[in-house]
């Protein structure tokens, strides 16, 4: 399916979805609350069949005060890709878990929780993935600093 056509089809699926500008592949921005439903529908639909969640990560837009969650979807049947993004506030980052739809989301969400502090509702096992449980803070947030870090000299 062509990129434009794909975007049209997906837009019809998702209520409240907008096309995300400035990306190099078909991309949508959706409300965070609709994520699990949308991903399940995208997976089940015959024409789309987005059965693989390649990647899930977040970006900390410090100035806007939001964390943007990115989901890279891939269809092993049709070979097309789709980026779904959703924004959650930095201060109260809560998003629904999609681990019921894609198994690997369980680990990807744990990594995003570890690095950004996003709390996933309905996650079966929300623990830190890479850092010690006693770690304070979430290092990939832009305002993260600790005593160990040294700035690169100019």
């Amino acid at each position: 399916m062509e990129a434009n056509e794909l975007q049209e089809v997906v837009l019809a699926f998702a209520s409240g979805a907008k096309v995300r500008e400035k990306t190099d592949r078909p991309s949508l921005t959706v409300p965070a609350a609709s994520l699990p439903d949308l991903l399940a529908k995208l997976k089940a639909d015959e024409r789309l069949s987005f059965d693989m969640l390649l990647d899930h990560t977040a970006v900390d837009w410090l100035e806007r005060g939001v964390l943007e969650l990115f989901y890279q979807l891939f269809s092993t049947r049709h070979g097309h890709t789709l980026t779904v993004s959703a924004e959650v506030p930095r201060e109260e980052p809560v998003a629904p878990s999609v681990s019921g739809v894609h198994l690997i989301a369980e680990w990807q969400e744990r990594e995003v929780y570890d690095m950004f502090g996003v709390l996933y509702e309905g996650h079966p096992d929300l623990r830190r993935l890479l850092l010690d449980d006693s770690w304070v803070g979430h290092p990939l947030r832009k305002d993260y600093r600790d005593d160990h870090m040294i700035e690169r000299p100019k």
Binding site: R20, T23, D24, L54, F70, Q72, T83
Partner: peptide, 8 residues
């Protein structure tokens, strides 16, 4: 350029 880029 400004935006989101993904390659694999």
């Amino acid at each position: 350029p400004e935006g989101v880029h993904y390659g694999q």
